[in-house]
């Protein structure tokens, strides 16, 4: 895959001395959905703002579609659409006017057919003559997306697209994102909802304290850090774990009804076969077996804690 955004050793220190970005290097592939995950204040928004030209670059380079984001800012920004975190809309302006305005800002000639297409895609066509202040929060967010898409960008930045949005709308947003991906738009979104990254991203980048801790394929990441839990429910409760099973480092539940076994999917041997053989030899009768994968959330927490240590 070819990369569409290249960031090299990007640093940014705010006037107050706060170092928001500490040398970020990142390559974003064309057509992917990259989720930047991190706690509040990690530097996610600063990273996006710097790529989009809202904050000045401290040092380092950003190229977008081969264009330097500072020197060739016009060409670079033409490729980018930005949906900010806050809902910032002029309250008295009609939906269709504010969307047209955005297209004009990017130097594109007026194209009512395209504006209609974007508004229909986001289910905003019926609301085109409504003023922003008359819209619900979810609709306003759609307007922001329409504004970001109306100049036909190849890259879309979504800063916390589902912050403070109810479950239904969040699913809605995910559908919109996956539709855009089908159209070939590269999408970079920031989030602190791990389930969001898990649900829609191709790759996940973890940002903490201005550093990019890792960027990895989502499934590879899950597998790499993937600890699995095996829960074995017994037919009859036991008081203690039989001596012959001591080597497997099992935990017994309080009621004595189930055994817990933790294993690493990265390991060459998971030890499950031996465990089950030994359980059978110990004369225990199984009622049920369940496995559970560790979520991205647990991976994330362990990464951030490692980083803090």
């Amino acid at each position: 895959m070819t990369s569409i955004v290249e960031i090299r050793d990007l640093r940014k220190t705010y006037a107050g001395g706060f170092e928001a970005l500490k040398g970020i290097t990142l390559s974003i592939d064309e057509g992917e959905i990259l989720a930047l995950l991190g706690p509040n204040g990690a530097g996610k928004t600063t990273l996006i703002s710097t790529i989009c030209g809202i904050t000045n670059v401290g040092s380092g380079t950003i190229t977008v579609g081969g264009f330097d984001a500072v020197r060739d800012y016009r060409q670079a920004r033409n490729l980018i659409g930005l949906v900010p975190q806050e809902i910032n809309l002029e309250p008295f302006t009609k939906v269709i006017d504010t969307v047209r305005f955005s297209r004009g800002l990017f130097g594109k000639p007026r194209d009512d057919a395209y504006v209609e297409k974007v508004l229909r895609q986001l289910s905003l066509w019926d609301k085109r003559n409504a003023r922003s202040m008359e819209l619900s929060g979810g609709m306003k967010r759609r307007v922001l997306i329409a504004k970001a898409l109306v100049h036909e960008p190849r890259i879309l930045f979504l800063d916390e697209p589902t912050a403070g949005v109810d479950v239904e709308l969040r699913k809605d947003m995910w559908d919109i994102v996956s539709d855009l991906k089908k159209q070939g738009v590269t999408i970079i979104l920031t989030t602190h909802y791990i389930e969001e990254a898990e649900a829609i991203a191709d790759r996940v980048g973890v940002v903490n304290k201005g550093e990019l801790l890792l960027v990895e394929d989502k499934t590879a990441l899950m597998a790499r850090f993937g600890q699995k839990h095996l829960q074995i429910d017994l037919q009859d409760a036991v008081a203690v774990i039989p001596e012959t099973l001591a080597a497997h480092e099992l935990d017994l539940s309080e009621d004595g009804q189930s055994l817990h076994y933790c294993y690493d999917t990265r390991g060459e041997r998971t030890g499950i076969t031996q465990l089950l053989t030994d359980i059978s030899a110990a004369g225990l009768v199984l009622r049920d077996i369940r496995t559970e994968e560790s979520s991205l959330e647990e991976i994330f927490v362990s990464l951030v804690q490692e980083d803090a240590a």
Binding site: I54, Q75, L82, P84, N88, E90, P91, L105, G107
Partner: peptide, 17 residues
């Protein structure tokens, strides 16, 4: 000032202007 107050200047700053 109005766009600054509303926070809509992001659009001016991120446009090829």
């Amino acid at each position: 000032y109005f766009p600054k107050f509303l926070g809509t200047t992001y659009e001016l700053l991120s446009a090829p202007l």
